[in-house]
Each structure stands twice: as structure tokens, then as C-alpha cells.
Write a protein that binds this DNA or RNA. Structure first.
Lengths: 288, 288
DNA sequence: CGTCAAAATGAAAATGGTTTCCGATATGCA
DNA sequence: TGCATATCGGAAACCATTTTCATTTTGACG
């Protein structure tokens, strides 16, 4: 799904002065644009109608009308990107802005995803004899644990290792047919790189969830690129967690589909054991 | 937000023959309408342009253009909802559908959020002497750990307890001024309820992230409602993780803003120590 | 079953918004 | 400074949309 506001983001640098005014108007007042004619928009921005037309073309739209339609679609989607910077310190605005950031993080990660790569990763994982998840630090270790949590349910022998020394030791025990999923937000976790190198010499396949072009990615057999800009505001949470979680979900789902019956049987067992000891009804989530 | 499709539903009975053809076209082929001119639409429906204009007026739109805008808005939301069920088993479709589910989960959680409640929770947390995060099972224990990971950076004494026996023991040591954040997807984690009861008798404030109307929620001093329907497909991941994570982020952000300078100083320290031992550049995420 | 009124519809003209063309102005570079 | 290029707006051309109005259809009633 092409999204006009991310297009805007991309081409903003090579926009002219008048076009930037229009860009600002679009961001601040999309609602107005959607309900106005080209002359109204031109007047409001203090430019001429032809400039507005050109602006629309630059954004990849056939015509002003097509442009309006695109804007309408995006603005309705929960004022997604528009609110990426909170309008105020009011909790409701903060909430909207966080939501916008996460949706953007997930959506742009999905857009950047190379499906062949993801498929290759899913293939490797679904036939792994042992699956080890490596990650250290806030986000990466959470993802590592989450990978264990998601894949053991599918009947895969899975272990999460979030400690550098343990990663090295785990690596030493791995062999052909084993797979490592290595998560690193920065892609520069050098101690993990050392462990991965060791694992590779013993025949393990390394799948990296990380930034491309960094040590972790360079070393991996398969790299699923997750490359998000970090925000400016130090008090704001990093959005990368959502991107990583999304990729984890996608992999888990694809692997589950590949493993079909066995995955289903394992999930059923987990559910059954849970509902035996706790009074959960059948619709309840798999594990609290 | 006025929704053109529900308007259509309402007035459908008093529509004329030609208008019904248009209604059918709108329902089956909104995508086409949005990208076409009035003559194209008229031709496709086998009616004349004026009929299309009249149809738009009937639906409460000023003009055909205004009509298109409305359709664009609704269909976008609609496709989001529709893609929640993957169009096929192709990885790209699965990815889109997971993304849609995630966005839907986050957005509906945000919509359901009572801001006064969230504020009250943030207030309680930001002045807590000890913050304990309770949770057990896949999602809840991940969230519990994540809470620790987020709040200790803000200078709060935080501990994550994901083991029922430990929760009970931790509860026994708590006192007035301490706060527990209890996460439970089902809201029926009875062993955790027992621990919470104990903590309350010792004066701790209990904030619950859970389903309303369930034991955990009933017992809590402050309940932040997270109430998502579980999907049908057992192979699909539960979306509740995203909802919980979003709420955690929101709380962390609000608390960070409340604690202002102290939070900033702690984050700076964490960053500094990390960049001392690892060659991260300054923009790097706080903790891999 | 025919007549008539009211509603529905389309053809064509009128309208008005959008685009194209072209010249004027500003900007960057040798 | 002078040339090349990009930017921009005025005005005309264009075209989609709307209005008008005549025709057809529908349905009620004699």
C-alpha cells in the first residue's frame, strides 16, 4: 500500500520553497485539503493552482483529485503519521503520537521486507534441529525470549540465550542443521558476533534480525533487515521493539504454517495443559 | 465520524433502480470508484452521469468529489479490516494481514483507553518507592520483564516477578508507597490474584493491565482495560502482546515526562555506560 | 385499461474547477 | 556579469461535473 505521507517524507529534501509550504499545509491541515478545491488550497498556501498541481505530480499522483483521494485514505487511518509529533503534553496526544510512531514503525518495516529472504529464513527455521535465539540488551533480549516463547509452541527445540558468555558456550555446542536467530538493534554487538562466528564454524545457520551493513548482518547467512531511525526525544521509547516483534510474528506464523499439523498438535497440547490447571475458557489466549 | 457505507445501509430501501446498481458497484468495487471519474463510474454502472451526482447527494455528499473522498476514507479502513484475514498463503499477504491485525489491536486499545485512569496509574508509578511488575505466561511475563526494562531506566527501583511463588514472597515484603503493575491477558490468573491480595493488605497499590470484569481487574486499585478478541486461527499469534506493549510504552512515557530531569539523567547514564564499553554512536538505541 | 401526475432518467448545454502553455522571475554557477 | 536552469504564476484551453430540461417510466386512480 503506497502511502503518500511517506512519499512526502522521502522527497521532502528536493522540494522547492512553494512546495514546502504545501507540504506543511498537508501535514498540518490534511482535513482541509480533502474538503477543498485546488484554488482554495492554492490560496490558503499563498501559491498558484499550477503549483499545487505540480506538487501533486511530484508526490506521484495523476491529478489533484487523485491526490485528494490519497490524502483522504491516509488521514482516516487514525491520523497516523500526522500526529507523530505530539500536539501537546496531554496524555491523549501522547497516546496518539506513540500509536502513530508504532504504526509507522511496523508499516515501514513491512514495506522494507524482502519476502524471499523471509521465506528463506522460515524454511531454515522450520527444519532446524535446534533453534537458538541470541540477543542482549533491552530490546534484543526481549525479542530473543519472545522467539523462544513463540517457537517452542510449534514443536521446535528452542532456547533463548541472552548472555554473552552463554552465547559463546551455546555456539560451541551447535552443529549442522541447527539455526540461530540473532537479534541486534544496533547491529554492532561485537561479543555476539564472536559467538556467531564460532557457531558458523560448527555448521550452524545464522539468521540475523538487524540493521543491514553492520557486523552482525555481514556475518549472517540470512539477514532480515530492520532499519529504523531513532527518535530525537530521549524520553520517548524506541520504536524498534515493534518492528522486531512484527518480524518475529511473521516468522512464527510462516513456520507454523509450514509445520502445519505438528504445530497445531503442539499448540493444542499447550492449551490443554493450561486449561487443565487454570480455569480458562476455550477462547482464552495461549498462555497468559 | 460519519460513515458513508452505513448511510447507504440506512437509505437503501428508498433507492431507485439505477441507484441500487450504483450502490452495488460501490460495495463491490469501491476501489474503482475512488480512482475513476464520474463518467467512468456512470458508464460502468450503465447509468448517466447526472444519476451518479444525484446518488452522491442522496448519500449526503455535496458533490461527486466529496463522495469519492468519503469512499476513499471508508474503504481504506475497510481494507485494513478485510486484510485481517490474509488473502492467501503467500508470505506477502500473511505479512499484510499480520500488520493489519497489529495496527487494529493497537488502535482499538488506544481508543478504549480511559485517560484519567492512565494518568492515575502514571502518577502512582512515578512516585513509587518500589515498583514490582507481576505477570506469568507468554505475554504477561514478557510484559512484566519489559516493564522492568523500561522503568529502571527512569530511576525507579523496579523488579519483575514472573513466578507465582516469588510473586507471593515479593508481595509479603511490600508496604505503603510501593506499586505493583499486574499484567494478565485473561484476567483470571488466580495465583497472581492471591499474591496481589497479600500485597494489598500490606499497603501496596495495584495497577492492573488486564480484561475488565475479571478477578485481576476486580481486585486492582487502578485497572487499565485491555480487552481484545482472540483470533480464530490457532496458528496466528495473539495480538494482545501489541496492546500490552503499547500501554506499557504509554505509561513509561508519561512517567518519564513526570520525572523529567531525573529520568533524563538516568537515561543519559545508561547510554554513557553503554557507549563506554561498546562502540556505539550517539544516535544508537538505548541498549541493544 | 387508459389517463394523468409524479418520479426517474439521460442528452445536452452551462458551469466551474483543473490543467497546460508560456512568459516572467529567481537561482545557481562559470 | 552573463548564461543556463529551475521555479512560479497568469491566462487560456480543457475537461469533468453539474444543471437544465425534455423524455421516459412508474404507479395510482377513474
Amino acid at each position: 500500500m503506497r502511502d503518500i505521507l511517506s512519499v512526502l517524507q522521502q522527497i521532502e529534501p528536493d522540494l522547492s520553497k512553494s512546495e514546502r509550504i504545501l507540504a506543511a499545509l498537508l501535514r498540518s491541515n490534511a482535513e482541509f485539503i480533502v474538503n477543498a478545491g485546488i484554488t482554495d488550497v492554492a490560496e490558503r498556501a499563498g501559491v498558484s493552482p499550477p503549483t499545487v498541481t505540480r506538487f501533486c505530480r511530484r508526490l506521484g499522483c495523476e491529478s489533484f483529485t487523485a491526490f485528494k483521494v490519497q490524502v483522504a485514505q491516509v488521514t482516516f487511518a487514525g491520523t497516523r503519521y500526522l500526529t507523530a509529533n505530539a500536539a501537546s503534553d496531554a496524555p491523549a496526544d501522547i497516546a496518539d503520537s506513540l500509536l502513530a510512531q508504532f504504526q509507522e514503525a511496523a508499516a515501514s518495516t513491512r514495506d522494507a521486507l524482502g519476502m524471499e529472504t523471509v521465506l528463506a529464513a522460515a524454511d531454515a527455521i522450520s527444519t532446524a534441529k535446534l533453534l537458538a535465539a541470541f540477543g542482549a540488551g533491552g530490546t534484543s533480549s526481549m525479542i530473543s525470549d519472545e522467539i523462544q516463547n513463540r517457537f517452542f509452541r510449534l514443536g521446535l527445540r528452542t532456547v533463548s540465550v541472552t548472555d554473552h558468555a552463554m552465547q559463546l558456550m551455546q555456539a560451541a555446542t551447535m552443529r549442522t542443521g541447527d539455526v540461530i536467530i540473532a537479534s541486534s538493534v544496533s547491529g554492532r554487538n561485537l561479543q555476539m558476533v564472536r559467538a556467531l562466528e564460532a557457531a558458523k564454524t560448527y555448521g550452524a545457520v545464522v539468521i540475523a534480525l538487524t540493521r543491514p551493513g553492520r557486523p552482525v548482518a555481514d556475518l549472517a547467512d540470512i539477514t532480515i533487515a530492520i532499519d529504523l531511525p531513532e527518535g530525537e526525544n530521549i524520553l520517548r521509547p524506541s520504536t524498534s521493539r515493534y518492528a522486531f516483534l512484527f518480524v518475529t510474528d511473521l516468522l512464527a506464523t510462516l513456520v507454523a504454517m509450514r509445520r502445519g499439523d505438528e504445530a497445531r498438535e503442539n499448540l493444542r497440547r499447550v492449551k490443554y495443559q493450561l486449561s487443565n490447571t487454570r480455569d480458562l475458557d476455550d477462547k482464552e489466549a495461549l498462555g497468559d
